[in-house]
Amino acid sequence: MSVRVLVRTFSELCLTIGTLIVLFVVYVLFWTGVKADGAMDSQIEQLQSEWAQGSVPAGDGAKPGDGVKPGDGAKPGDGAKPGDDAKPGGSGDTESSPPAPAAYEDGKPFAVMYIPRFGFTWNKPVLEGTKTDTLKKGLGHYASTAQLGQRGNFSVAGHRRTYGDPFKDFPELRPGDPVVLTDGTTWFTYRIVNKPYKTLPTDIGVIDPVPRKSGLDGPGRYLTLTTCEPEWGHSHRLIVWAYLDATQPVEEGKPEALRS
């Protein structure tokens, strides 16, 4: 085997590896976004068609009423009330009042989130669970935390980079910014209370029912958003907290925060 062959093979190997790296960068920066956008759109479509058919898990709407006031009798949103869940989903049970909506199904979308600070076209599906595959299709609800609009801390994680960059502008969030969610029957408007708070991944207290570092006091209906920090790293997390400011049935149209 001559030197020429060795040198040529080595060069070809280097070229191949370089091409592979470039392709991988293209995949991570571009292709994951393309795939995620498609997946998120289809999740939202799926939700909207479910809502159009009226197969929404009935029974919110009524209770949260006035946001943060503690002690108005609604149960914490653990969703496990046997009586409610026994009904097969989608049987159109509009009869009043199961206090908690049926438990969310893992990996399935159940709500759409709007954050005007990220742009008025920004909307993402919220799926149950924070598995890797789930987070590729939208934002992920920490399964151990309260349900949307319920007492406790409704906590959601999302990618800051890759997979559609849903939380790319996370550091731009400011106190008073609205975070609006809908589950098909009710609009929930949360108000952010802090500038993004940087913490360690092990700081699980941030998604406690009453997150102690948020300045929020006493039990209430809260929301927590988490994403990674720094932008391309995983050494820390960024956190914002919010409290439930207002709710209104979807029939009354979009909430104030989404009109502009």
Partner: peptide, 8 residues
């Protein structure tokens, strides 16, 4: 880039 959650 995937690590966006706090341990829970």
């Amino acid at each position: 880039f995937n690590d966006v959650t706090v341990n829970e």
